[in-house]
């Protein structure tokens, strides 16, 4: 068993510095360097695990745990530290009180929202006066991707025309959700370039969402917030399928499917 080396920085302070370092690294990385802030809720979750990991590393040996707890024990038990103890015992409850006060203080900010981006689709839905089964519904033009690439290209182009005439005002001409009207909407329109949006979905899901729009969202988990028009009132069924081809083609994504072909 080796002797515990004399440390320049006390172990407790080391631990606090590591935790503070991790906290400010997140802020620096996201808020400053990458220019996309890290949400408070996520940062809190991150820090819970960072603190857990750091405490584990500092306490897995008996010597480490004792060295860490030493100053805390001394603060409570050592008669020579009466003054420091009194100061700490005043500051800690004050900080807790301040935290409680700030948390309870009424705010004009709207409450945090757990918004569901991808609503669960129904098994069947009605559009264009007929019933569609989402489990079996397929894009009738998808087959041309392999069977007749020239025709497929022409269909994609037609879909692009429909998109530019109808969709780009909100979803953007780069399909990144930054169309001219986007800033007026909350929540903002979906960014199709994001790997977590259309690439995660089957074409039948897109058809349902486009055809029935915001009002067609399911009753479950209502109320929904969506400015999506009911496109079956403005576009034909064919136009919707073509625009779906365009969405995937332009973004370079493939619709979710279960076959390798």
């Amino acid at each position: 068993m080796s002797a515990t080396p004399k440390r320049v920085i006390p172990r407790l302070l080391q631990m606090v510095l590591v935790i503070a370092g991790a906290y400010f690294s997140f802020i620096l990385l996201f808020d400053v360097l990458l220019g996309q802030l890290i949400p408070k809720s996520l940062l809190t979750m991150y820090m819970v695990f960072v603190v857990a990991g750091v405490v584990m590393v500092f306490t897995f040996t008996e010597e480490g745990a004792q060295e860490l707890a030493g100053p805390i024990k001394a603060l409570v038990e050592d008669p020579s530290r009466k003054m420091v103890r009194n100061v700490v015992f005043v500051i800690v409850p004050l900080l807790a009180g301040y935290y409680t006060y700030s948390s309870m203080l009424p705010s004009f900010e709207a409450p945090v929202e757990l918004r569901t981006i991808h609503p669960a689709p129904p098994n069947k839905f009605k559009a264009y006066g007929k019933s569609y089964n989402l489990a079996t519904l397929e894009n009738p033009y998808r087959k041309f991707e392999k069977e007749d690439p020239a025709k497929f290209k022409a269909l994609v182009k037609e879909g692009g025309d429909v998109y530019i005439k109808n969709c780009q005002y909100c979803h953007g001409d780069k399909l990144d959700g930054k169309g001219p009207y986007a800033s007026g909407l909350n929540p903002t329109p979906l960014n199709f370039q994001d790997v977590g949006t259309i690439a995660q979905l089957q074409e039948s899901f897109l058809f349902w969402r486009i055809a029935t729009g915001g009002p067609g969202l399911p009753a479950e988990a209502a109320p929904w917030i969506s400015s999506m028009p009911v496109w079956q009132e403005f576009l034909t069924e064919d136009e919707i399928w073509k625009v779906i081809l365009f969405l995937y083609n332009y973004t370079g994504r493939q619709p979710r499917s279960w076959s390798h072909e």
Binding site: P39, K40, L42, N186, P187
Partner: peptide, 12 residues
Amino acid sequence: VLTNSELKDLGG
């Protein structure tokens, strides 16, 4: 999970 101001800052 975003506050309104975070939602605006992130743009979505």
